[in-house]
Computed example of a mutant assay.
Amino acid sequence: MIEPVLTIVVPCYNEEDVLPDTISQLSQLIKALTGDQLISNRSKILFVDDGSKDRTWELIYKESLRNDYVRGLKLSRNAGHQNALLAGLFTAKDSSDCLVSIDADLQDDIEVIREFIHKYNEGNEIVYGVRQRRDSDTFFKRSTAEGFYKLMQKMGADLIYNHADFRLMSKRAVQELAGFKEVNLFLRGIVPLLGFQSNVVYYDRKERQAGETKYPLKKMLAFAFDGITSLSVTPIRFVLLIGMVSFFMSVLFGCYFLMLKFLGETQTGWTSLITSIWLIGGLQLIAIGLIGEYVGKIYKESKHRPKFIVDIDTFTIPISRHHLIGQTEEDEIYTMERRKFSESN
């Protein structure tokens, strides 16, 4: 059996605290998988710097000078986790047989990647890493996350329950993914739409060892809302349903009050009038706001702006490699290469 070329894609944003350990663990994993003849010795780890403001890129770049497994991709600005992940996948797809995406904090169990490879060799084009339990999460996070997956499934989105972005995709699957041209790509919902043979591997998620989470409550809510509006038109249909129900209720109440007027039992009331105005006005504002979200997405799509812009690429563009270099020479190479890329761009 021919060993597949594997590329592990790791999006990074301000991850200088966890990167040294992440690089060490993933490098040891690649070496072990190569030694067991599960993957080719041309396999790599591609770290994507998503516009970090700390030393993340410097650590990635210097490591790529001395570690043959490590490559780096630097985006010109912060494009967001999903776009950074796409940048890595699309950059590495032509040189890889299969690609694994994983977050830099390594809360996802990297030993599961071995099982990913076995599933891939069995003919699966996509292998999903699925959490067995959420015991490490707070009650609020666990309940909201599970509620989100259930809500999306009821809306018709084909999401894998308790799956995030820890998955293996074949070269063919990533090439087909590149055919989705919309700006608002919600990968957890788009990947199942590819329809290729797939499988799941269950694992236990670990605690974050260092640094801070890049998904506080505000970002989690924005991410969830973006996923809902990117994959489903059910919310806007729900608003239409509310509008129709409100209209028919208004007709019924209108007939009722008209009957009371003919019977001479009506009483003029300011409260009922104001309540009706506020109720209908609130429904209208909700409907307009929701429609505005979809119009805003259409606006973004019509511009055809790139999802990301690459500043420096050490995966496809060769760099000067010096083994057994000292710290001072390493700093000089980093500065020289950085200047060369700046001038070429």
Rank of each mutant, 00 (worst) to 15 (best):
V130N: 07
V233E: 15
G282C: 13
Y128N: 01
Q25R: 12
T56C: 08
L193M: 15
T316M: 06
L217C: 05
R142E: 01
K44H: 12
F139N: 05
I277N: 07
S320P: 05
R305H: 06
D105P: 00
M259S: 14
V18P: 03
L260C: 12
S143N: 10
F341P: 06
P216R: 14
V191Y: 07
T266K: 08
R188C: 02
M220I: 12
V112I: 13
G88N: 08
T138P: 01
L168W: 01
G292F: 15
T268N: 12
Y294W: 14
D158K: 13
T316K: 15
Y202L: 14
L73M: 08
E111I: 00
P4K: 10
K53H: 07
V174S: 01
L279M: 13
F257P: 07
V18D: 00
D36G: 00
M220Y: 10
N67R: 05
D313E: 05
Q37E: 07
S101F: 00
I286Y: 15
H322F: 01
I309S: 07
E15R: 08
H81Y: 14
N78L: 03
A178G: 07
I228W: 05
K93T: 05
G254F: 14
E115K: 14
E182L: 03
M169F: 08
V48G: 00
Q327L: 09
L273W: 03
I2K: 15
G179V: 09
L187V: 03
N67F: 02
G195D: 14
L185Q: 09
E293S: 00
Y149W: 13
S320K: 15
R205Q: 14
S272V: 06
V100L: 05
K303Q: 11
R55M: 07
Y120D: 01
D165K: 04
I117V: 13
G179H: 06
Y294H: 12
P235E: 13
F262T: 11
L99F: 05
Y299S: 03
F315R: 07
G156Y: 11
R133F: 06
R55E: 12
F253G: 00
K214V: 05
V239C: 14
K93P: 04
K300C: 09
I317V: 11
K53P: 00
T213A: 13
A79K: 04
I291H: 11
E146D: 06
Q267H: 12
L260Y: 09
V9G: 03
T314N: 03
I274R: 15
F148C: 02
I39F: 07
S320Y: 14
L29R: 12
F223A: 11
K218A: 05
V310T: 12
L168D: 00
M152K: 02
V245W: 15
E207S: 12
Y215C: 02
K219E: 10
G243L: 15
R142Q: 04
